[in-house]
Nucleic acid binder design. Structure first.
Lengths: 334, 334
DNA sequence: TTGTACGCGTTATCAC
DNA sequence: GTGATAACGCGTACAA
C-alpha cells in the first residue's frame, strides 16, 4: 500500500495515449475504445493514481464539497444532525467541510464566506441566526438547505420538526395523566426553538383551560446546570408542582438530579418530560419520557436532498415529526 | 451583504495594476508601494473579493485543509475529540475535512486515499486500525498525528492517555474503599482501549493480591445495553460483588439502570466507576465517579500540534492524563 | 517596486 | 475514437 501522487500525464505516457483520453476514461462520460480504456485503467492501477481535486475543481467548477455550518459543536441535538449529515454524504462523492458559526451572526457570515471561497457546491446550515435576506442571497447563489430550524417561507429548503406541536403534545400528555401544576424550564430565551417549545407549553395549557402561572416558568439555557438551578428556584418559590417540562434532555437531567437531592422522587412525586431524546435518556434513572427529534434522520435527509439539488434535480424534503417517547419519568396522578 | 465571486483579475483592472501585484498584497509577502497597496485593498473591499482556494492550492501546492479521519461518529469520547479538533483549527486558516473510517481497516484506507486526493496538508487520525506500515508511509508523506490511540514507537506523534494506568487507578480507588469483589464490564474485546482498561483492572487487583475471578468479568461493547445485559448475567451467576468497573460511561449508565431495576441501590449496595466522563455523567443519579479523558483538550492539542508540523516547525505533544473524578457512585465499604 | 509569462493538473472545445 | 490546445484562478521566477 502506497500513497502516490501521479497525474494523468504520467498515465497518458504509460498507456501511450493523450491526457484527454485518460480524462475520458476517468470521467466515464465519453466513448473510448475498450482496449485503450483497459490500458488506461491498467496504468492507473499500477501507478496508484488518485485524481487531484484542486485541478479538477478549478477546471470543472465543481468542488464535490459541501459546506456544513454548525453552531457550537457539543450540543447533543445538533451533534446528532452532524452525524446524520456525515452518513448522508458517505458514498456520494461529496465531502462535508465543517465550519462553526458559534450562534453568532457575524461569525456565521464569516465562516460562510470562507466555505464560499472554497467553492463548495452546496451549503448545509445547521441552525443559525443569519437574516432571511442573506439566506435568500445564498439560495440564489448555490443549493442551500437549512436543518433543525424552521424558516418562514422556506419550508421547501428546510428540514425541521414542528417544535410548537411537539411541545404541545408533550404537555398534553402530562395533562392527560392528571397533572395541573406543570412547571417549565425554558431554553435560551432568544433561541427560536426555546421560544417555540414554550409556546407549545402555553398552548397546551390554554387548551386545557389553564392559564400559565409565571411562577412555574423558569429560565434556563439548555444546560443541566440550569435545570438544577431552576429546581432550586422553584422550590424556593414554594409553589406546588407535580410535573416539569424541560426545554431539552440536558435540562431534564439537571432537574432530576436536583429533585433527588431534595428527596423528591421521580416520577412518584414529580414527573419529568424532556426534549431531544439524546442517546443517554433511555438509560436515565428512571428512563426519561421525552420528545424524540430524529436528528440523525434529519441530517441524512438534508444531505440526500442537497445532493439532488446539486445534481440539478429537485428534491422533496420529508416532513419530520417529533415523537413522544413514553418511558418512565411520568406518573399518572390519582 | 453579498456573496460575490470576483477574481484577482477584476481587482487588478479596478486598481489599475497587474494581477501579480494583487497577489502580492494578498499574500503580504513582498514589498509593495503603500499607495498601490491601498488601492488594491480598496478594490478588494468594494468588490467583495474572496480568494479561490482551488486556484490558490493548485498553484501553491497548499490546501490549507486537514483530513480528519474519524471512526463512527456518535461515540461520546471521539465526539469530544472531534469538537476539540474543530476548536483547535478555528482561526488558524486550516479547515478540517471529516471522513469516517467506521472502525474498518479497508474503509479507513479508502477514506484516507480520498483526503489525500484532496491534497490535504496534514492528517489527523482519531483512533483507527490501520497497520503501522501504512501509518509509517503516511508519516513520510505528510504531517500526521494520531489522537486517542497509543501507537508503539510513535509516542511523538500521538495524543493519548495511558488507559492501563487510568483504569488501574480507578480500580485502586475501589480497593481503597474496601471493595474486594469488583466486577468489570469490558468493551469490545478486539478494541485496544478495551484491552488496556481490562489490563489496568487486572493489574490493580493483582497488586492487591487478588486474582481475577472470571465470573466477575463480563463482555460488553461500550453500549448502555451491554451494561444492562452484563448486570443480568452477573446476577444470574450469583457471585457476590460490591462494585462494578465499567469500560466506559455508557456501560455505566446501563449498569446503574439494571441495578435499580433489581432493587439494588447505588452506591449503598453496589458502587460504580465509569470511564470517559462524558458530559452527562456529572448529572447522573447519583453523579458518576469516572475517569476523565480530556477529549476536547486532546483534540485541540492535536490540531495545534499539526498546525505547527504543517508550518515546518516541530511540535511537542502534551502528555494527557486520565483523571479520576470523584463523585457519588462509590461508597466506602465498612 | 511592478509587470510578463509560465506552470499547477484537470476539464472542455475543438479539430482530426 | 482520439489528440492538441485553451481555459480555470492564482503564485512566482524573471525581467523591467
Amino acid at each position: 500500500m502506497r500513497f502516490n501522487t501521479t497525474t494523468i500525464k504520467d498515465i497518458a505516457e504509460r498507456a501511450n495515449v493523450s491526457k484527454s483520453t485518460v480524462s475520458r476514461v476517468i470521467n466515464d462520460k465519453a466513448i473510448v475504445n475498450s482496449r485503450t480504456r483497459l490500458a488506461v485503467l491498467d496504468a492507473m492501477k499500477s501507478l496508484g493514481y488518485e485524481p487531484n481535486f484542486f485541478a479538477r475543481s478549478l477546471a470543472s467548477g465543481l468542488s464535490m464539497t459541501v459546506g456544513v455550518v454548525t453552531q457550537k459543536l457539543g450540543s447533543p441535538f445538533y451533534d446528532m444532525i452532524s452525524q446524520g449529515v456525515i452518513q448522508g454524504f458517505a458514498g456520494t462523492g461529496y465531502s462535508p467541510l465543517f465550519v462553526d458559526g458559534q450562534w453568532e451572526e457575524s461569525t456565521e457570515l464569516e465562516v460562510i464566506r470562507t466555505v464560499l471561497g472554497r467553492k463548495v457546491d452546496g451549503l448545509l446550515l445547521l441552525g443559525g441566526d443569519i437574516s432571511e435576506q442573506d439566506l435568500s442571497d445564498l439560495k440564489d447563489r448555490l443549493p442551500t438547505i437549512v436543518v433543525g430550524k424552521e424558516v418562514p417561507g422556506w419550508q421547501d429548503q428546510c428540514v425541521f420538526v414542528d417544535n410548537v406541536g411537539a411541545a404541545r403534545n408533550a404537555v398534553k400528555h402530562l395533562l392527560e395523566f392528571g397533572h395541573r401544576n406543570i412547571a417549565m424550564v425554558c431554553g435560551i430565551s432568544c433561541h427560536q426553538d426555546a421560544i417555540r417549545r414554550y409556546e407549545g407549553y402555553r398552548l397546551a395549557l390554554s387548551e386545557a383551560g389553564i392559564e400559565v402561572d409565571p411562577g412555574l416558568v423558569l429560565e434556563g439555557d439548555f444546560s443541566a446546570q440550569s435545570g438544577i438551578m431552576a429546581v432550586n428556584t422553584l422550590l424556593m418559590r414554594g409553589k406546588p408542582f407535580s410535573a416539569v417540562f424541560c426545554a431539552n434532555d440536558m435540562v431534564a437531567y439537571g432537574v432530576r438530579l436536583a429533585l433527588q437531592r431534595k428527596g423528591i422522587r421521580v416520577p412518584e412525586d414529580v414527573s419529568i418530560v424532556g426534549f431531544d431524546d439524546q442517546g443517554e435518556s433511555a438509560y436515565m434513572c428512571p428512563p426519561l419520557t421525552t420528545v424524540r427529534q430524529p436528528g440523525n434522520e434529519m441530517g441524512e435527509a438534508a444531505a440526500a436532498g442537497l445532493v439532488k439539488l446539486m445534481q440539478g434535480e429537485t428534491c422533496r424534503l420529508p416532513v419530520m415529526q417529533g415523537e413522544l417517547k413514553y418511558r418512565e419519568s411520568v406518573a399518572r396522578l390519582i
